[in-house]
Design a binder for these strands. Structure first.
Lengths: 217, 217
DNA sequence: TTCATATTTTAGATAAGTCTAAATTTTTTA
DNA sequence: TAAAAAATTTAGACTTATCTAAAATATGAA
């Protein structure tokens, strides 16, 4: 088994690698709120365990073994988030911290039974896909609202920012997962966007919000 | 917040103090599978935090603050055990190790909602009482089968040994929580006991089993 | 009540994970 | 392309929790 710190590094590298491929020491340090020197120490350890590909000064990527562990942790995180929202009635902006702890509960059988108990959900409360017990999941291609054109419509299916303030704001605006929206206007000046909901309500969102709100077409 | 090690020491001291009042360094070391010198180090730290009463060579007891934390951990442990058995269909001999990890999930609100989700259960799968959110619980006076006389009857309500082999044995003999039994014979020679179940089945158990099986009269 | 034994504590080390400060390597820019 | 800047690594230190071995204290038996 791996330590809590090791698991957090693997998960972090996995997330950063989605955009970048190879991940830098400083990226990891920024993401984990730690120092680059601490990261270097840990990278050596993970490389010794054959969980990452690492050559000095060249950044890192996960090995197959490392990716498997990372996906396992993400599976646990998302299943526990689903549990907290669907069974214990937490809001989607309240569950991240708790799931950060719960994702390290080691038993595989526990998580598989939890998955079954909840009916094998495919997405967590933020729209992120939940890997199955073999680590497989298909990630639908989502686009930020900011990448759409006037009159395009789609379904809110994910967020790029998982922070409470952002999620609370979306909730207040009723811009939650599953809602269908149509782009009605794009303001050239500040790149803010006007949306129309199914109930014909019009909502203005800033460029920043439009960047962090993901749509499936 | 306290570290995982600190929480485990507090819980351990709480359990040992139930019989003894004051707990010795060696008792703790034996219970936690560690060395007496390690225990001494930790006792100093817990005393600095005012969680235990400690004077060198004199053993320890929990302060009110320490006891409150210990009971909180035990509440979490037992609620998670209940969840694992009642919701995820684990057997009573499978849940201890998992609950040992889950009891350290920090959120109080999570555990209170879990409690509510399950309908505020009063006892865990091994018959141990579950403290409420204020740390209150009433422990019924239970007697080991070995303390009963011929013809006495009662209901199986707890165990002293929580190990898998013991619990599996009881399960196989159908000596599980809630079953009513009557003492039909006590063998002088080896202190083994003959029991009759509600279905009039006769079961012989050894002195050791009789010592670890608890009855409410 | 004194001495042998058991218990407990202290002293000094170790491993994991972190830090700061300094050194090294890579990248950028002029 | 050489110097400056940025990124990364190394060196050495700190904390937590553990260990072994030795010293101190308590207990109990003669």
């Amino acid at each position: 088994m791996n330590t809590l710190a090791e698991e957090n590094y693997l998960k972090c590298i996995y997330h950063l690698a989605i955009d970048a491929g190879v991940v830098s020491t400083n990226q990891i340090a920024a993401s984990l709120n730690t120092r680059a020197s601490s990261v270097t120490d840990m990278l050596k350890k993970l490389a010794d365990k054959a969980l990452i590909n690492y050559t000095r000064y060249q950044g890192v990527s996960l090995t197959d073994a490392g990716e498997k562990i990372a996906i396992g942790i993400i599976r646990k995180h998302r299943l526990w988030e689903y549990f907290l929202v669907e069974k214990l009635n937490f809001k989607w902006d309240q569950v991240h911290e708790m799931a950060e702890e719960m994702e390290h509960i080691s038993s595989e059988e526990l998580i598989d039974r939890l998955d079954e108990f909840m009916g094998h959900p495919k997405h967590d409360p933020h729209g992120d896909p939940i890997p199955d017990c073999n680590g497989n999941f298909k990630s639908v291609e989502l686009k930020p609202v900011s990448a759409l054109a006037i009159n395009q419509c789609g379904v809110i299916s994910g967020v790029r920012d998982h922070s409470s303030p952002f999620l609370q704001y979306l909730e207040k605006q009723q811009l939650t997962i599953g809602k269908k929206v149509t782009i009605t206007d794009i303001i050239e000046y500040d790149h803010s966007v006007a949306l129309k909901t199914e109930t014909d309500k019009e909502i203005y969102i800033s460029r920043e919000v439009a960047n962090n709100l993901l749509i499936s077409l």
